[in-house]
Nucleic acid binder design. Structure first.
Length: 469
RNA sequence: GCCCCCAUCGUCCAGCGGCCUAGGACGCCUGCCUUUCACGCAGGUAACACGGGUUCGAAUCCCGUUGGGGGUGCCA
């Protein structure tokens, strides 16, 4: 039997990295088993029904290269099926009307000295439907629901622990639990792969499934959650979780996908950074582990840097254009000062040094600004300038020699080396800091030769002034 | 509170009863390369939460404890 999975996000305004990971694992499973994946938007809650929210899911998935064979389907458009299902459940005695609000239920529980929750108050009241009525599912009093989870193994839930949950809101709209069962059945879903946060809802859906007589149930596989450094589920409020924002910061989609695939799963041969085709081949849902995984930016940076370095230089230039041209981001130089040709000449060296595309700006800013700024509190300044050997002398000599040295990269480099040798000190770092503002960067003298002589000399003098201040 | 899940280096992954003096990757540290930084290369640091079983033998199986997480909505 061919596999068929679905990625079924609630549209909340943007694609969460956790959701992206779920989508990816569904996709990897479908691809590796030669199956299909469908995209279904779970918008049973009216508040989630906004067209712009759909784009916020579809676009990132496309960017990541996560494809689907059908959809997007919208649960809201299948509402009638869900309404019918609810009606069927009421008629068959599996569900009943209830006119209590959440507050009523809490109060009744407290008065009865019962734990919080709904205790079947209206179960046998035989209430008619009404404007403020919800429909609740009558959970079995005993027995258990057993899930043979593909990643977790057997999980059991005692039915008596399951309260009579709401399947239709008082506004008449069915909840996602019904929609889930009905749609998964109608759409022929064979495997439900999703986050562990939904594990507790699974027995409810299974109960509905049986009550609705929907036939064979899909297999379930609950993925470990993605967590932050505090080991809490990644959340919109506390953490950076917007996939698009990562891409906007200069993480490559391929790197993002590679990193995500490594959270909760690992290739048998320990080769972590590899093409998606190989990941598909090696992926096995049974090998997904159970413990939650920390979304580690440092590791992402490493993977991203590796992918960036593998790019053809022209491609790197192309990809960094939105950043160096200041599209959507601020750039430290005046836009007319940017020289694309000059940028292209150094791009190859920049490419070897960045972890994200956005960082390219930091490596070339000194080529396009008038004067560089010195961070007098920085470690580099303190170590190489303030405490460096004969730094004032180096800067003075360079300023004076640069006044009449041949203005070429080679000659400039020779002059710097000569000064260092004459003084018995390392002259490169002080010169670099004075001219570029920092001790880390690309091989510089050819690029320096492209700057005006007086600009370079002025920077050497500025650094000297800053040093003596 | 109750229900459910989880537990190997700081982090991610390997380990599926003997091959484990616990392996790889990221990070961190050292050295080489280099009169910058990075890459690369060579090293190093660092873990089976604890306690009981089962077994000739346990990181691997079972139970308990502890710790962490998720759920407990007329959100999904």
């Amino acid at each position: 039997m061919s596999t068929r999975v679905r990625f079924a996000p609630a549209p909340t305004g943007f694609l969460h990295v956790g959701s992206a990971r779920s989508a990816l694992f569904n996709w990897l499973f479908a691809q590796s088993t030669g199956g299909e994946m469908i995209l279904r938007i779970e918008d049973t809650d009216a508040a989630l029904r906004k067209p712009e929210f759909i784009d916020a899911i579809v676009k990132p998935l496309q960017t990541l290269g996560i494809t689907w064979d059908e959809g997007p389907y919208y649960q809201s458009q299948r509402k009638q099926f869900h309404v019918d299902a609810v009606e069927q459940l009421v008629e068959s005695g599996h569900a009943y009307y209830c006119n209590l609000t959440r507050e009523d239920a809490d109060r009744l529980a407290e008065e009865a000295g019962l734990p919080p929750g709904y205790h079947g108050w209206s179960r046998d009241a035989g209430l008619p439907d009404g404007p403020d009525c919800v429909v609740r599912f009558r959970t079995p009093d005993d027995g258990e629901v057993v899930i043979d989870d593909l990643v977790r193994g057997t999980v059991r839930f005692a039915c008596k622990e399951l309260e009579d949950f709401v399947i239709r809101r008082s506004d008449g709209s069915p909840t996602f639990l019904v929609a889930n069962a009905v749609d998964d059945a109608d759409m022929g879903i064979t495997h439900v792969v999703r986050g562990e946060d939904l594990l507790n809802t699974t027995p409810k859906v299974m109960l509905l499934w049986d009550a609705l007589d929907l036939g064979d149930k899909p297999d379930y596989g609950h993925l470990p959650l993605l967590v932050n450094e505090q080991r809490k589920k990644l959340s919109k409020r506390r953490d950076d979780v917007s996939l698009m924002e990562f891409l906007a910061k200069g993480y490559l989609p391929e790197a993002m996908v590679n990193h995500l695939a490594l959270l909760g799963w690992g290739p048998p041969d320990d080769v972590e950074i590899r093409p998606i085709g190989e990941i598909i081949e090696l992926f096995k849902l049974e090998n997904v582990n159970k413990g939650s995984a920390f979304f580690d930016i440092a590791k992402l940076d490493h993977i991203n840097g590796t992918y960036i370095r593998e790019l053809p230089v022209e491609r790197f230039v192309e990809l960094t254009e939105p950043f160096v041209y200041g599209v959507d981001i601020d750039v430290p130089w005046a836009s007319e000062a940017f020289d694309p040709a000059r940028y292209e000449r150094v791009a190859g060296e920049v490419q070897q040094r960045v972890a994200t595309l956005a960082e390219a700006v930091d490596f070339v800013d000194w080529l396009f600004v008038e004067d560089v700024e010195y961070d007098l509190e920085s470690k580099a300044w303190n170590k190489s300038m303030r405490k460096g050997k004969q730094v004032p002398e180096i800067l003075e000599m360079l300023a004076s020699r640069f006044a009449d040295v041949e203005w070429s990269g080679e000659a400039l480099n020779d002059a710097v080396m000569a000064v260092g040798n004459e003084l018995g000190a390392r002259s490169q770092v002080p010169a670099r800091i004075a001219i570029t503002g920092t001790n880390a960067g690309i091989p510089m003298w050819d690029a320096v030769a492209e700057l005006d002589r007086d600009v370079v000399i002025r920077r050497l003098e500025n650094a000297l002034t800053a040093l003596r201040a």
